[in-house]
Amino acid sequence: MSSVVVRDYIIPANDFTIAGDASSNVRKILSQIGVAPDIVKRTSIAMYEAEINAVIHGNGGQAHVEIDENKIVIIISDQGPGIADLELAMQEGYSTAPDSIREMGFGAGMGLSNIKKNSDILEIKTAVNEGTTVYITVFFK
């Protein structure tokens, strides 16, 4: 048996009832394979934020997860509007979320900076009108 665990999830557009299921599932897997609780927490926060971003801004998308004994790599991609100014988007408090989203308690502009804070490597590829792909890596040691 291979010792790389792979998971693929569909992230539905604008459906907050399902948003977060993928990161919950990943959290359970990481606990089952014995990853330390604080690392599990960082990973699930980073993934949850990216998932929510795809729901809010990206019109949904997909998550691809690979776990080996050293690290987890999470790739979340959407075919949404893309990010025009990535540097600006990374700043805490900057948000383009519409009021309807903010009313639900999301869209505080902490998403990307929170992902960065909780991941070891964060890479973002984005193009206006084409979509955004977020690569998150968290090491286990």
């Binding site: 048996m1 291979s2 010792s3 790389v4 665990v5 897997i29 089952q32 394979i33 014995g34 990853v35 776990i67 080996d68 004994e69 286990f140």
Partner: peptide, 11 residues
């Protein structure tokens, strides 16, 4: 207890 084995078991 061995993460490699745990990953294999997960698969």
């Amino acid at each position: 207890d061995d993460m490699m084995k745990a990953l294999e078991k997960m698969n």
